[in-house]
Amino acid sequence: MRVFVAGGSGVLGRRLVPQLVARGHEVTATTTTKAKLDLITAAGAEAVVMDGLDGASVGEAVALAKPDVIVHQMTAISMTHAGKPDIKHPDRWFAKTNRLRTEGTDHLLAAAEAVGVPHFVAQGYASWNGIREGGWVKTEEDPLDLLDGTAAYAGLKALSRIEDLVLGIGGAVMRYGAFYGPGAIDDQVELVRKRQYPLVGKGTGYSSWVHLDDAASATVLAVEQRVHGVFNIVDDDPAPASEWLPYLAECAGAKPPMRVPVWLARRLAGDQAVVMMTEGRGFSNAKAKKELGWELRYPSWRLGFKAELAES
């Protein structure tokens, strides 16, 4: 198949492109800078500089590639694009990413329609943002929590909009858990080692994780099988912060995280951090495993954190 990966030089794109190439697909992958063209060509793909916020740039790149499927992985969360992580103000930190998930999505969908691309796969999110009622682990049938009225709303609403648009054209949305793997959590590990990543309250909020290589392999299956619908791409082990954060610290060779009360965390880190740490709902991967035949290299972050940090 001819696969067009928008955002091929990002943390997931760098794992996804080689997997697609290894399975015999003809891949065109985009980056926003000439400096990363060699990174893509070294993985065996055709590299293209594209501005995801410029409709003409997107249209030209897609038209030249003539793909059978577009995979939307455009974000701007890296330090280069977004600066230092700011969990208290995700509306600011994710400002460009939110544009790529709204305007950028619109440009890709318009280009897909113009060229007649038959399949579209987009990036979603499923880590701690399940609806805060009922059980601690949610399926694709459960609503997402958009945190209306908080600084996180704009970003979560942009993701919800992607789902509506992509499902409307018969595409697939991969709701990835929190990424870890090469380059994905370096900033978090640094904070953990400095004891600047505390537990909030009792740390009862659940999160779901996924290694970049597992996220990429699930995406390859969605491309090859031309699936439709939403899939939670998370590992087998949703867990509360009181479990995963101390274990991450242990694997990083750091002291146990400090604990701060909810009122102080809300003042220092904002609503999103408090919800994630105290009320977050994780996700089930049963649908992805059953319908895609997905097998995980790292079925639990407990294995993955240890393996990843042992190599760093």
Rank of each mutant, 00 (worst) to 15 (best):
A111D: 08
P67C: 10
G104P: 13
W263R: 11
W93V: 08
V173R: 04
H119C: 05
A42G: 06
D236W: 11
G124N: 00
G304R: 11
G44C: 01
N129I: 13
V234S: 08
T28W: 00
N129P: 13
T30I: 05
V48S: 12
T204V: 01
N285V: 14
I233F: 00
G205R: 00
K157F: 11
W244D: 09
M50P: 08
G183V: 04
N232H: 02
A22I: 15
G253A: 14
D91C: 00
V117T: 08
L53F: 00
L156P: 11
D271Q: 15
D51S: 06
W136Y: 15
W244Y: 08
V17Q: 09
I87C: 11
D271E: 13
V69A: 14
T219S: 12
V173G: 12
L303D: 10
E163V: 07
D271N: 10
I169V: 14
P85W: 13
R15D: 05
R132A: 15
Q188P: 07
F179H: 09
R15H: 09
D164T: 07
H119S: 01
F305G: 01
G130C: 04
G52Q: 03
T31I: 10
T28K: 00
I233W: 00
G253Q: 14
M79V: 06
A22R: 12
K194L: 15
E46S: 03
G24I: 08
L264G: 15
V274N: 02
T105D: 04
A29M: 13
G229M: 09
K290G: 05
P143N: 09
L199Q: 14
R175E: 01
W301F: 07
V200H: 04
S78K: 07
V192T: 08
L191N: 09
G280Q: 05
T150L: 13
Q196P: 01
E291M: 14
S9W: 01
A63K: 15
V48I: 11
A122D: 15
V11T: 14
V71Y: 05
G116F: 04
V27S: 10
G280V: 07
D51H: 06
A29Y: 04
L20P: 12
W294L: 04
Y247N: 10
A154I: 15
A184N: 04
I169W: 14
V262C: 05
V220N: 00
Y206C: 15
E103A: 10
V260E: 06
G24R: 09
K255M: 11
G13K: 00
E141N: 13
V274P: 03
A95Q: 08
G124E: 02
T32A: 14
S284N: 07
V27Q: 05
T150I: 10
T219D: 15
A152G: 07
E103S: 06
W244H: 13
E163I: 06
W294K: 03
S300R: 14
S284C: 06
V189I: 11
G55P: 09
V274M: 03
F94Y: 03
G130A: 03
T278F: 04
F305V: 01
G13V: 00
S208H: 03
M50Y: 10
T97Q: 02
Y298K: 05
P261L: 12
A218H: 02
M50R: 10
D91L: 01
V69S: 07
A216Y: 01
Q272A: 08
A6W: 12
S312R: 05
L167Y: 07
K96I: 15
S312K: 12
A63H: 13
